[in-house]
Amino acid sequence: MTSWLVARRHADGTASAWNVANALTVLRVLLVPLMGALLLVEGGQDAGWRLAAFAAFAVAIATDKVDGDLARRHDLVTDFGKLVDPIADKALIGTALVLLSALGELPWWITVVVLGRELGVTLLRLVVIRRGVIPASRGGKAKTVLQSLAIGVYLLPTVDAVAAWKPGLGLGLVLVATLVTVVTGLDYLASAVRGRRLGPRTLPPTS
């Protein structure tokens, strides 16, 4: 089944949207509400449901890595994937941040800063799209990794095994992730301005 999805192509040789990479992206989208529902069971206080929410988040993050690798390795990059993949990522991170803040576990200002940055970058992408798409940079990838690690720590149930190190590690990671989020957002803005000065399709990489 997987080999059929990978091999399927249009008559002109371009990859069909019906491929395993896009299937993993759709799975990530479906895991977003599942993760949210599991996190909210009993107000986020039940260790079992909390661990299930962590597992759903971890699987979703793993699909983000796998679908990208498959798309590049097997030439499965499609317009559908380009559109839905970043939406799935932002939905996953955004949902987790909002729910953790709603549960009183994560300061709202962090959620507002991160989501504000993502909204701003999305709007900038729409503004500069005629001059080219700005690819993700190492800073942007580091931002995603740090955000994922921080959220993963926060999602873990506070049981004896993690109670000693979870608060400090979680707060440290989320503060570093927020700083990197802001810095890469400013870098994106600078890149967009440079691209406007240099002309079409000369935008340097960022995130």
Rank of each mutant, 00 (worst) to 15 (best):
I93M: 13
P33L: 03
I61W: 06
P86S: 03
G48V: 13
L198N: 15
L99C: 09
K65E: 12
S16Y: 00
S101P: 02
A177Y: 03
V26R: 00
L171N: 11
V183G: 04
G132L: 09
L156E: 12
S207D: 13
P205C: 13
L155K: 08
T25S: 04
V29M: 13
V6S: 07
V133T: 14
D85P: 00
L30I: 01
G140H: 05
L189P: 00
Y154I: 10
D85Q: 03
T14Q: 13
A88R: 03
P200T: 07
A17K: 06
R28V: 00
A15M: 07
R138H: 11
V121D: 03
V41D: 07
K82Q: 10
V162T: 15
V121S: 02
R194P: 10
V41G: 05
T78E: 04
P33K: 03
A53V: 02
T158V: 14
L40T: 05
L97C: 10
S207F: 14
K65N: 12
V77M: 11
A15R: 01
T184D: 05
A7M: 00
A62G: 12
R130F: 04
V121Y: 01
G168V: 11
W165F: 15
V127G: 08
V153P: 11
R201A: 14
R28Q: 12
D89W: 04
M35G: 14
V182Q: 02
A47S: 15
L203I: 14
P204M: 10
G81V: 06
R197P: 02
T144K: 03
L39A: 09
R194Y: 09
D67Q: 02
L83V: 07
D67N: 03
G195I: 01
P167G: 12
R201V: 11
T181F: 09
V98L: 14
T184I: 04
V29D: 01
V84A: 14
R117K: 09
R72I: 11
G43F: 08
K143L: 09
A56T: 04
G185H: 00
P204S: 10
A150H: 03
A161I: 14
K166N: 15
A192K: 01
L173M: 14
S191W: 02
V121L: 07
T111V: 13
V77K: 12
L198C: 08
W49F: 13
G116C: 01
Q45H: 11
G104K: 05
T95N: 05
L76G: 06
